[in-house]
């Protein structure tokens, strides 16, 4: 399924640098979670002024604006913005189609480790999940960074809704190449006031194949074979079907307020992100 530990570590190390140039889109959103450095939903103890309001019994007297009391004789509370650490749920689809071509497999792992490093460097609370059809498994972050233990995880049947944390950022890395309807999956991503991002890596040979003539197709997941004469007309219809498949996903993503970014295997990683993910808001430039 996944490559060996050294390969994974190498990619992880490379993505540390990439996460310094770009990151997941934490900015401009209201997060919930433990204390951190990102704008939270409530008031807190940061130095960013948020609002004034009348004192209510039980309020912390340390936050009474004494200057305002001197001017008005009323107790007025001075509120500051809360700063939290976002919760990030990172889901990696590890079905065989994700690794059907070397270029695509590399891009899949780059996206995973980029997202992981980006969340870590932003101080987010990260959880990694591996997804295999209807089953999922939690992959500890430290193990994921070390490329260890992925082959001995306890898999559980979870369906499209994983045990998300409330208000978390859910990052799904999947090629979306399965015949089912996208709705349940996207609804799962957006559940519990979550924010969904889907990175969909693809290989050029999938989007624009050079098939012609007699071809014996072998399904990379089921091993099923099919002999097909591919004419230019059939090839053109296939390309149309590919575009229609992702157009359908895109429509569904818009409906569920999930960001979808297709990331090709070419060119290099940062340039791909800049071209294909940045305009869609799936990533942002690091400060």
């Amino acid at each position: 399924m996944l490559p060996d530990r050294e390969t994974l570590r190498g990619i992880a190390a490379r993505m540390q640098g990439a996460a310094g140039r770009m990151r997941l889109p934490f900015r401009g959103r209201i997060w919930r979670g433990p204390d951190g450095s990102w704008q939270g939903a409530g008031s807190g103890s940061s130095i960013d002024f948020q609002d004034h309001r009348a004192y209510l019994p039980g309020d912390d007297p340390r936050h009474i604006d004494w200057a305002a009391y001197a001017r008005s004789g009323h107790y007025t509370m001075k509120l500051y913005r809360e700063e939290v650490s976002p919760a990030v749920e990172l889901v990696l689809d590890v079905s065989a189609s994700m690794f059907v071509a070397p270029g695509k497999a590399a891009r899949v792992l780059e996206l995973f480790y980029f997202s992981l490093e980006s969340a870590r460097q932003s101080g987010a609370s990260v959880r990694c999940h591996l997804l295999r059809g209807e089953e999922s498994a939690r992959w500890p972050v430290e193990a994921a960074l070390g490329g260890d233990g992925w082959d001995a995880l306890p898999w559980r049947k979870t369906g499209p809704v994983l045990p998300w944390r409330q208000g978390s950022l859910r990052v799904l890395i999947s090629d979306l190449l399965f015949p089912g309807a996208p709705g349940p999956w996207l609804a799962g991503l957006a559940a519990s006031r979550g924010t969904g991002i889907v990175f969909s890596p693809f290989a050029d040979a999938e989007a624009d194949p050079d098939w012609a003539g007699n071809i014996e197709f072998s399904d990379c997941e089921s091993g099923r074979t099919r002999v097909q004469v591919v004419s230019p007309a059939l090839l053109e219809r296939y390309r149309t079907a590919w575009r229609r498949h992702f157009a359908l996903w895109e429509d569904e993503c818009r409906r569920h307020r999930v960001v979808l970014a297709q990331v090709g295997e070419e060119p290099d990683f940062l340039e791909s992100l800049q071209r294909q993910a940045l305009p869609r808001g799936a990533v942002e430039m690091a400060a």
Partner: peptide
């Protein structure tokens, strides 16, 4: 190309 074999991830699209 008489005996070309391809490992495909999008067979479901082709079957449709």
């Amino acid at each position: 190309r008489e005996s070309r074999r391809v490992r495909a991830s999008t067979l479901f699209l082709l079957e449709q």
